[in-house]
Amino acid sequence: MFERFTQSARQVVVGAQEEARSLGHDWIGTEHLLLAAVRSPEAPGAATLVRLGVTAENCRAAVASVVSPQGDALGPEDAEALKAFGIDLDEIRRRAEGAFGDGALDAPVSDQGAKPRRRGPFGRRQRRDRTGSLGVPAEVPGPSGHIRFTGRAKKALELSLREAISRKERHIGVEHIVLALLRGDDKISQGMFQQLGVAPAQVRDLVLADLRSAA
């Protein structure tokens, strides 16, 4: 799939990794893809967002307001829903910190106890397949290790392919990524656009209109 990405679209994917690192995040989400897209204000799709007042600066402010330090961590509504099933997250945290110290649940999970990697012939370790469905990688390599794509980010990249197919275009450009992001139905994407004052369905129509006029 990635061989169909234009150079500008590839820069969005790489830029998303840079945005994640700059924000101290160890995941790549739709928020980082959006941030990277508006860094190319002249690119199709991104230009529409910029014309509507979306910038890297107010995107970062929106990220700070809707994204928890744990990324896809459960929010207050989720916690209340779990209480209905007899699961009290606050009580679980209190007990864990009482037994293991403050912040016990915030520490990264270690690899101890993980299943050993399978070994191939001659005792060599087999490489894990880091490619997901439709060729979307599960992780992006970087100087400080790999950063994983969240499920919603992978879905957005897969949708960008579908956007290109629906327009009968052979390449995947920034415009297709933007159109895919505007289709996001997860709480992070919806929260981001709400903070930015963007109505996704209406902006999708504007992006498509701009693409038609530029054709």
Rank of each mutant, 00 (worst) to 15 (best):
115 K>S: 13
70 Q>T: 13
112 Q>W: 10
38 V>C: 02
45 G>V: 05
47 A>Q: 08
99 A>S: 13
37 A>V: 01
51 R>S: 09
33 L>Y: 01
93 R>Q: 14
81 A>S: 14
116 P>C: 13
94 R>V: 02
22 S>T: 13
122 F>E: 15
36 A>S: 11
51 R>M: 02
69 P>R: 02
95 R>W: 05
16 A>P: 06
52 L>N: 07
100 F>D: 10
22 S>Q: 15
63 V>L: 00
46 A>K: 02
25 H>I: 05
28 I>R: 08
15 G>F: 07
94 R>L: 09
95 R>A: 14
63 V>S: 02
26 D>S: 15
77 E>F: 01
84 A>M: 12
81 A>F: 03
18 E>G: 14
54 V>C: 05
64 A>F: 00
127 R>W: 01
76 P>D: 09
30 T>C: 11
34 L>I: 04
80 E>V: 00
76 P>M: 01
117 R>F: 14
100 F>N: 12
123 G>D: 06
112 Q>M: 12
86 G>E: 02
17 Q>K: 13
97 E>Y: 04
38 V>H: 03
77 E>K: 10
63 V>Q: 05
17 Q>P: 00
93 R>L: 12
39 R>P: 05
75 G>D: 15
42 E>F: 07
45 G>R: 02
79 A>L: 10
123 G>K: 01
87 I>Q: 04
36 A>F: 04
